[in-house]
């Protein structure tokens, strides 16, 4: 029953969103022929399971259809911030639900 403060729409109930995955993932560059299998294996399969704040991607599927990055505490479910899918992340006040 979280409220996610979508940077495009404002605070919305989590029911409008779909959880997508790890927001720290960086896909190997397209067209980089030399990339070894290990990097792809890790990108595709290996995920950290942190206890505490975690950067996640959520999809505002029943809203603006934008993917957003959400910093959520996996232990307390507290949400520390929410940013557009790409670009700089201006840090917000720790501990406050933004």
């Amino acid at each position: 029953m979280l409220v996610i403060n979508c940077p495009w729409c404002g605070p919305r109930d989590m029911e409008e969103f779909t959880y997508v995955g790890d927001g720290t993932l960086k896909r190997p560059e397209i067209g980089s022929e030399e990339t070894d299998q290990k990097a792809w294996y890790e990108y595709t399969y290996i995920r950290d399971n942190p206890r505490g704040p975690h950067l996640e991607v959520w999809h505002h599927a029943a809203g603006c259809r934008q993917h957003v990055r959400v910093k959520r505490d996996t232990l307390t479910h507290e949400i520390h911030g929410c940013w557009p899918a790409s670009g700089e992340m201006a840090d917000t006040t720790e501990g406050e639900t933004k």
Partner: peptide, 13 residues
Amino acid sequence: MAWLEYYLQFVWP
């Protein structure tokens, strides 16, 4: 649809 949006918005903005 969601998959295309993911790549356009998050992976290849």
